[in-house]
Design a protein around this nucleic acid. Structure first.
Length: 586
DNA sequence: GCCGTTTTCGGCCCGACTGTTTTCAGTCG
């Protein structure tokens, strides 16, 4: 169990204690311990394996014992007891944005609400507005939040990150199977969609039965799904894998894997357009390949029968489309672009030259500025911006004006000591509820880069929120708007905001919008990022790093950018140090 | 439950924002 896992349980414990109305200082102690473990620079499990747990601030005798218990058993007794006492639906209710432990408790005690469905009923019957401190406005808000919660849980989709990790596990295990020559990811995971409903895999094998057998007996396969639709002569099986995710495996002989990969990669909309195009040219295209009245298409490679193409790219080439990267196969104009030879040269990891949103230990990051610099240098970056929090984000140890000045001095100091990378002094400055910023203009001017973001007051109405963000973007010192919609997976859909207006303001004032690469955010999303490109607004792909490992999240931001058709010139952190300094005027 | 140059008990404790209030409780990052 890693620090994040321990911190997660401690934090949940605090919530449960609060629900039960325990001593507030005890609750605060668990919260503090949770934050402290999360921010601790070394993995506690590593240290514990070698001996004793170190002294962690805010962790005393009692919680230390519980951490040891967690490291041994994965949980602790008191937590399990309290979990068992509280109805399971309560946890979900507390996850609804705007409902904390106190509200959940009041709903439970006074109205008998034990599930999200109960909550919806209570709201519809106007019983919630009669509770203390909850009026009609809150009731309406809770109803909306609860309903969106139910809708999103109908199709329990996995995050791209989780699905990617599982797919990798399965591939590694199946690679050892002698009956399988190669195995590849298809479906929405290959298109790098932000959530996926299932994982589609294609295995290359001349012994399909054996391949399927290895698949359904994977170590973490929970059960095989019966009665799944088959796909012509391709062998196919579906399983439920650990973590309740469906995985499909299709087996193909080498000669036909191209069309199968193409078909299974989709999207469905893309395939429909592709079929239309093929029909217009006298072909038909399906999972069996490109067929022209039973004969092999021109330039095609003959496979196991009439008209089979072994390779996916040949299929696209024969149709006159060139190569279409999987990320853009959504029927959002890629067919036309292919026909006109205007397929974008999508951004790649190697194009990224720096990261403009990084937190250090000065606020809520885990590492020192120097550690961040050294690590970024190893990644081959030319620059990173150190953007710690401003005072409004007090819980994240936001920097007072005095501390920000010291912060700037330390950055200068590290810049002088270390060659090979340039640190930009910055801030992730809060946009207050009225649109004013957390620091004075003089102070903002003394920074190399100003990233602004909304962290509190997320429930403002659309007009107010839009005005708030617009005001910030009109500030001459601001450079980048971070996580522009504020969404968090599994938590909230993002605040109400007029994106058209935000983007227009960004364009008019030459401001940059962020694609936040954190797997829990991915904000801007692909549609918004595409909209930015079309409106001529530049984008920064940043990681919002809070510990060294987070730098790697850049790949998820790049996935979003590629799905949005972004090319290197659309993204500011592909610029060289010299050019980025020139647009930042530093 | 944590902590201690006031050290084994008694104080501790983020600040902004909102909706509900008429001075504040609850939520959030």
């Amino acid at each position: 169990m890693d620090n994040a896992g321990i911190a997660g349980i401690l934090g949940h414990m605090a919530k449960l204690l609060e629900f039960r109305g325990e001593n507030p200082y005890k609750i605060a102690a668990y919260e503090k311990a949770s934050r402290s473990v999360k921010a601790y620079e070394k993995e506690l499990s590593d240290i514990y394996r070698r001996g004793r747990l170190p002294a962690v601030p805010g962790v005393g005798k009692a919680i230390k014992d519980k951490i040891e218990e967690m490291l041994t058993t994965g949980t602790f007794e008191e937590y399990e007891q309290i979990l068992a006492e509280i109805p399971p639906g309560i946890h979900e209710i507390m996850n609804i944005s705007g409902v904390g432990p106190k509200t959940a408790r009041s709903l439970h005690e006074r109205l008998g609400v034990e599930s999200v469905e109960d909550l919806i009923r209570a709201a519809e019957e106007h019983r919630i507005r009669r509770l203390p401190r909850l009026g009609p406005k809150q009731e309406e808000r809770l109803l909306r939040a609860a309903k969106s919660r139910v809708e999103s849980s109908d199709f329990r989709r996995s995050s791209l990150t989780a699905a990617g990790i599982i797919a990798q596990q399965i591939i590694e295990e199946l690679d050892n199977s002698p009956s399988i020559q190669r195995i590849a990811i298809a479906g929405s995971l290959r298109r790098r969609k932000e959530t996926v409903g299932n994982i589609d895999l294609v295995a290359l094998s001349e012994e399909p039965e054996k391949a399927i057998d290895s698949f359904v007996h994977l170590q973490k396969a929970e059960r095989e799904l019966e009665g799944v639709d088959d796909l012509g002569e391709y062998s196919h099986a579906a399983i439920v894998y650990e973590g309740n995710i469906r995985v499909d495996l299709y087996v193909s002989p080498e000669a036909r894997c191209g069309p199968l990969m193409q078909y299974l990669t989709g999207s469905k909309e893309h395939n429909i357009r592709l079929q239309e195009l093929a029909r217009g040219r006298g072909y038909s295209v399906s999972e069996h390949g490109l067929i022209c009245a039973g004969r092999i298409p021109e330039n095609g490679t003959a496979g196991g029968g009439a008209g089979y193409l072994a390779k996916e790219n040949e299929l696209y080439r024969v149709l006159g489309l060139g190569w279409l990267p999987p990320e853009i196969r959504e029927d959002r104009g890629e067919i036309e672009a292919g026909l006109n030879g205007r397929v974008p040269r999508l951004i790649e990891r190697k194009d990224i030259r720096g990261d403009l949103h990084v937190h250090s230990r000065w606020s809520d990051g885990r590492n020192s500025i120097e550690e961040l610099a050294m690590h970024a240098m190893v990644l081959g970056y030319e620059y990173i911006a150190i953007t710690d929090h401003s005072p409004s984000t007090g819980i994240a140890n936001g920097l007072s004006e005095e501390r920000l000045l010291e912060h700037i001095r330390e950055i200068e100091d590290v810049n002088e000591r270390i060659d090979g990378i340039r640190l930009l002094s910055g801030t992730e400055c809060d946009i207050r509820s009225d649109g004013r910023l957390d620091y004075s203009s003089e102070l903002l001017e003394s920074l190399d880069i100003v990233v602004v973001a909304v962290h509190a007051g997320l429930e403002q109405d659309r007009e107010k929120m839009t005005q708030r963000i617009v005001a910030a973007l009109e500030n001459e010192h601001v450079d980048i708007l971070a996580h522009p919609t504020g969404r968090k997976f599994g938590k909230r859909t993002g605040y109400e905001v007029d994106m058209d207006k935000v983007m227009q303001t960004a364009f008019d004032n030459e401001k940059v919008l962020e694609i936040n690469s954190s797997p829990s955010r991915l904000d801007l999303n692909d549609m918004h990022a595409r909209m930015a490109k079309e409106m001529g607004v530049k984008v920064a792909i940043d990681t919002d790093t809070h510990s060294l490992a987070h730098f790697e999240n850049i790949r998820y931001g790049i996935d979003v950018a590629r799905r949005a058709w972004l090319e290197p010139q659309d993204v500011v952190n592909t610029l060289s140090l010299k050019d980025i300094c020139s647009i930042l005027r530093v």
